[in-house]
Structures are given as structure tokens and as C-alpha cells.
Amino acid sequence: MQFNPAWSLVALAVASSLPAVAADVVVKIGHVAPVSGPQAHYGRDNENGARLAVDELNAQGVKIGGNKVRFELVAEDDAADPKQGTAAAQKLCDSKVNGVVGHLNSGTTIPAAKVYDGCGLPMVTPSATNPQLTALGYKNVFRLLANDNALGAGLAQHAKNVLKLKKVAIIDDRTAYGKGVAEVFTKTARQLGMEVVSEQFTNDKAVDFSAILTAIKSKKPDGIFFGGMDPQAGPMLRQMQQLGMSKVYVFGGDGICTEKLSELSSGARTLGNVVCAVGGASLDKLAQGKAWRGRYDAKFPGQFQVYSPYTYDATMVLVDAMKRANSTDPKVYAAKLASTDYQGVTAKVKFEPNGELVSPAMTLYVYKGGKRVALN
């Protein structure tokens, strides 16, 4: 067939008469958690929750400011290390993300909050519970669950009022989270009339607690409060059994209250003595909980731990503020976060003026047959 230049002109004319198709506006949601190291199972779970939210938002075809929006998750690893946490925060600032979900640990979230405040990025943490975070006064920082004041006090009240314990010992890992929640438990226990017979310290890398536990055993406590995370709580439970401390209760905050704790304790009978607290309601008792867990498990089988419903909600809360502001610009939509009134999976999300969640729930859990079971 002979080439006819007129055809090209016709094709160009037709093409130029078609309406222009606007490209999607890309909105970047930053996420930071430890996805390497001993706390990687927490970090993966958190990242999964945010990723599930992003996927579902993209399937909805969200429009903001008259433009179709495509969301991208920009995920960083802070390895639960404060220095790495601030470096990850600065990287997200430099990458011009539109908002941040994270960090997981209080020890990384608190220094990172200063970085985000400096670059004007809104941040919603799904899991950092140290009260100091919102006491810093940053207007762009919000927390999606109960803080350590509620968790530590609630556990102490359960120990005294329900279990009728008289003597307790304290161990904390000296992190911002572990130290903070342990201090609240200790203070409340004393106020309730319990005797604190020993206060011991470890770190968030330790695996051998035999010396600490031996010193505590001589004090004959009814219970031990551990301020820390499950990579330490698991070995601690095994070593308590080896030392014959099989009747001593073990209390802890959300840091130990994971499904993985059963595996980390290697089937120790002392797992049955654990009472732990999470700053939210049990998924099984939430209207959207079971359906959400089904979607999560279908996409990320066997990876659920604790906080992924909160990272999911935190992502949705950021986007809800963008919709109400009709803008994805952090400088524009940030002010709308303070007036959030959003029905999430985990709660009806409203914030106090300092960024704390209004009327946060708290759930106590125990372990039966190796499975985590809600008490309330």
C-alpha cells in the first residue's frame, strides 16, 4: 500500500479534537516502622495496614480538588532506632510526601515528630503511646489510640481489684515506651496499696533475664510488670518457667500483646499468666472488625499482630482531611485534621486539642491455649 501523507493529517486532526485525559494526581503517604531487626513483625503488620488502605482508596477512584487521585505508599524502615527514625523522617520530608502514618515506637516517634513539625507534615501515629508525644505541643501530631497513662493504670487496677495482688515487681527496657508505661503502672500500683518489691532494668536487645528474674524471685512477688516488647517478653516467659516462677502473673502493655508472643515464648506455661493491654477495642467486638480482618488476612495471611487496623485508620483519617479541605497540600489540609469526625474500623475518630483521641477504648487480653483472647 502506498503511503498517503493526507492520512497522517487526518489522524492528527482527529486526535486533536478528542478531549484531553487528565493524568492522576499522585499523593504520597509516608509510613515508617521497623521492618528489619527483632521488631520486624510489628513493622510489617503496620505497613500492611497502611498498604491495604492505599489499595482500597485507589480502587474507589477518589477525587480531590476536581482531580482523580492515585495514592502511593512511601515506606521507610527505622529499625526501632531513634537515629534511624529521624533520618527516615527527614527523607520523607525531602521526598515531599503529603502526610505520614507512623512511627511505631515512642522512642522513634518523639524525635521524628520534631522533624515533621519543621517541614510542616501532618503525622498520625497508630501505636506510639508515650504521653510525652502530645505534650510537645506540635499542632501536626495526632495519636489514634489510648496512651500509656490509660494502659499502665488499667493494668494496675486489674492486678489489684480483680486479681487481688499484693506484691509486684517491675522490669523495663529503658526505651521511651517501656520506661513510660512501667512508670505509670508503678505509680498506680503504689496508689492502690500494692507493694513494689523490686525495680529492675534491661534493654530492648536483651535475651537473657536470668539474673534479673533470680533477684526478683527472692522477693516473692505475685506479679511482674514488663515495660517492653515481645522479642524480650517471650524469652522472659521461658526463663520464668525454668526458674520455677510458674504462678507469677506477667503484665505488659501493647508492646507484648501480640499474636507472635505465643511463638516467642516457645509454648512456656507461663504464657497463661500474661495479662496485657491494647489501647483500643477488640476487632471481634467492632462493627467493621471481622470484615476488615478478613480482608487483611486474605491479602497478608499469617502476618496480623496488633496495630495494622490503626495504620489503616490513620491513612483513612489523613485522606478524609484532604477530602474535606479539597486539597492534598499539607499546608492546606492539616488544619482539617483537628476537626476530624471519622468512623474508622477501630473507633469513631475525634481528636482532643492536643492531638489525643477522644474517649479511647482499652482492651485487656490473656492467652488461652496459646491464643490471645480479649477479657473485655
Rank of each mutant, 00 (worst) to 15 (best):
M1N: 10
L9W: 03
S16A: 10
V25Q: 13
V26M: 05
V27K: 05
V27S: 06
V27Y: 05
H31P: 01
V32D: 06
A33R: 05
P38K: 11
P38E: 13
R44N: 04
D45I: 03
L52Y: 05
D55P: 10
L57T: 08
G61F: 14
G66K: 12
N67W: 01
K68V: 10
A75K: 08
D77N: 12
D78M: 03
P82S: 07
P82H: 13
Q84A: 04
A88M: 13
A88V: 06
A89M: 13
S95C: 11
H103Q: 06
G107E: 13
I110W: 08
A112F: 01
K114E: 12
Y116K: 04
G120L: 14
V124P: 00
T125H: 07
A128C: 06
N130A: 15
Q132H: 08
L145R: 09
N147V: 00
N149H: 02
A153T: 15
H158A: 09
K167E: 03
D172K: 00
T175I: 08
G180W: 09
V197L: 02
I212S: 01
T214D: 03
I216H: 00
P221D: 00
G223Y: 09
A233E: 05
M236C: 14
L237H: 07
M240S: 04
M240V: 08
Q241C: 04
Q241D: 11
Q242T: 15
G253D: 11
D254F: 10
G255K: 06
G255E: 12
I256C: 03
L261H: 06
S266Y: 13
T270R: 07
N273G: 06
C276F: 07
A277Q: 10
A277R: 08
V278M: 12
L283I: 01
K285P: 10
L286I: 12
R293W: 08
R295L: 11
Y296L: 09
F300K: 01
P301W: 14
G302D: 12
Q305D: 13
P309Q: 10
Y312S: 02
T315D: 00
V317K: 00
D320L: 01
K323M: 12
K336A: 11
T340S: 15
A347Y: 06
K348P: 02
K350F: 01
E352Y: 07
P360L: 04
V366C: 11
G370K: 12
A374W: 10
L375R: 05
